[in-house]
Simulated scan of single mutants.
Amino acid sequence: MYPKPYLNYLFHFFCTRDYFECHEIMEEYWKSVGKKRDVWLALIQLAVSLYHHRRGNFSGSVKMLDSCYTLCRNISFSETGIDQQGFLVLLREKLEEMKRGEAYRPFHIPFSDPSLLKEIYLHCARLSIDPDQMEREEMIINKHRFQKKKKGGG
């Protein structure tokens, strides 16, 4: 029902909270569908914003989430199972938190399809993944540093 890259994005978003990986997965998918689906771009922007926020880059996180919020007000989320109105409310609240310089807290995407989130969390449990533990890992917090080394060979 949902595209596999989207499900992979949600797995990383909720289970590993690896927002860098979310960005990578969704950007590749977005490009493969011809950059015509703004909903995928919005999810990319959300992941990038949260990645910056967790690292204390408030200006980058605010800029990206503001762009995401603006985009989300003008697109349809019908193919995602996301509760669009609830999502917009939570985006606005998160944006205000960031503008006030509040510390990072995980963001929970609200769904109109409850089976979607249930399946994601069941997958986390099957793999014995603790999201709170995962997001404290240096490899998750500063993944861009590790990616540069990996791609650049050292």
Score class of each variant (00 low, 15 high):
Phe77Arg: 07
Arg55Glu: 14
Met64Val: 13
Lys63Phe: 12
Ser112Met: 12
Pro131Gly: 09
Arg73Cys: 10
Ser61His: 02
Arg136Val: 02
Phe77Gln: 08
Gly81Tyr: 02
Ser67Ala: 15
Gln85Asn: 15
Gln133Tyr: 12
Cys68Asp: 08
Met98Ala: 01
Glu28Ser: 13
Ser78Cys: 05
Leu90Trp: 02
Ser67Lys: 09
Glu102Phe: 00
Glu138Pro: 09
Leu95Pro: 02
Asp113Cys: 12
Tyr29Asn: 04
Val33Lys: 01
Glu24Arg: 01
Lys35Glu: 09
Ile129Asn: 11
Met98Pro: 00
Leu65Trp: 09
Ser32Asp: 03
Glu138Leu: 14
Ser61Pro: 05
Leu116Glu: 09
Leu90Met: 11
Arg136Ser: 12
Arg136Gly: 14
Met134Asn: 05
Met26Val: 08
Leu90Thr: 02
Glu27Asn: 09
Asp130Gly: 03
Gly34Tyr: 03
Ser49Glu: 06
Leu50Phe: 08
Phe87Met: 09
Lys31Phe: 03
Leu71Tyr: 12
Trp30Ala: 02
Lys150Tyr: 15
His52Ser: 10
Thr70Ala: 15
Gly34Arg: 02
Gly60Pro: 06
Glu96Met: 00
Val48Arg: 07
Leu90Phe: 04
Phe111Ser: 04
Asn142Pro: 00
Ser59Leu: 13
Arg92Gly: 04
Arg105Ile: 01
Ser49Pro: 10
Met26Trp: 03
Asp66Glu: 10
Glu79Gly: 07
His123Arg: 14
Arg145Asn: 14
Lys143Ile: 06
Met134Ala: 14
His108Trp: 06
Ser115Leu: 09
Gly56Phe: 11
Pro114Asn: 07
Glu119Thr: 10
Glu24Lys: 05
Ser115Met: 05
Met134Gln: 13
Gln133Leu: 14
Arg54Phe: 09
Ile25Ser: 05
Ala47Gly: 11
Gln84Leu: 15
Gln133Pro: 00
Leu41Asp: 05
His108Cys: 02
Pro106Asp: 02
Met98Tyr: 01
Val39Ser: 08
